[in-house]
């Protein structure tokens, strides 16, 4: 395997150039996937025979919850890269992804609560899935607070990385909470090994919005990371040139 890309990632300038080329494509993908997926899900997908129209919240709830959890796994991976290879860009990624992950968790919790009212008769129950998602939100808050609390950049990077890795234990708890405990929450919509229990015209729009949320996450993350790289390197020649061009 060719590892040269991994070493190039250590160069902020290389990252800035390549991400600038990717960004428009991810932006276009976001608009198309979310646009088609949401219109299809809201107006053309059939009603659920038990939940009626309230199930249409699934087209934003499930993608947000998936991205919230994937984002946390990415934080932990970035934390390991920070600790092992001392790669600065991994620390930038960790810092910039944490607020997006927190917002995604927020969306999952709020849309879930709104969906719960007509379906379960209550906005909130302290069951395993909901509680472990709330813990995920608090983990994100902890990482954001810690990353801003220490002024020494190396110490801050290390502490934040360790917290991100330790918090990873919560992810399998969220994933299997619907199988391990009795819960009001319905089981997973997508499984890798089985076909979805929904008809195609229900899950295809969901697949589109899931991909759309990942694309939007990438757009937001790249924008934040590019900004952070510019701030950290603002004294260098290439940043001056880049800002000159951006004007």
């Amino acid at each position: 395997m060719n590892w040269s890309f991994f070493h190039k990632l250590g160069s902020p300038k290389w990252f800035y150039d390549i991400s600038g080329r990717w960004l428009p494509w991810f932006a276009v993908a976001t608009v198309l996937l979310l646009g088609i997926g949401i219109v299809w899900g809201l107006f053309f997908a059939p009603q659920d025979y038990q939940q009626g129209n309230s199930f249409r919240i699934i087209y934003i709830h499930v993608p947000a919850a998936l991205v919230a959890q994937s984002c946390y796994v990415m934080l932990a991976a970035a934390g390991i890269v920070t600790l092992v290879w001392r790669m600065k860009l991994a620390d930038v990624a960790l810092r910039c992804a944490a607020p997006i992950g927190a917002w995604m968790t927020f969306i999952a919790l709020v849309t879930g609560a709104i969906w719960g009212k007509p379906t379960w008769g209550t906005y909130w129950v302290w069951d395993a899935r909901l509680t472990s998602m709330l813990i995920l939100l608090f983990l994100y808050f902890g990482i954001i607070a810690l990353s801003q609390a220490i002024s020494n950049r190396d110490t801050s990077a290390k502490a934040t990385a360790v917290l991100a890795i330790v918090g990873l234990v919560n992810i399998p708890i969220i994933k299997y909470s619907v199988d391990w405990w009795n819960t009001l929450h319905q089981p997973a919509t997508f499984k890798i090994t089985e076909k979805p229990a929904m008809p195609v015209e229900m899950w295809l729009p969901l697949l589109l919005t899931v991909l759309g949320f990942y694309a939007l996450f990438t757009v937001s993350l790249l924008m934040r990371m590019r900004l952070e790289v510019l701030r950290r390197e603002h004294k260098t020649r290439w940043v001056r040139d880049a800002l000159e061009k951006a004007k």
Binding site: I57, I60, H61
Partner: peptide, 19 residues
């Protein structure tokens, strides 16, 4: 949406604002 409108639309509005 057969009475589910307020739930569905508020969920979508909040999500759109956050995104």
């Amino acid at each position: 949406m057969d009475g589910h409108g307020p739930y569905v639309w508020s969920a979508y509005a909040i999500t759109f604002a956050v995104l």
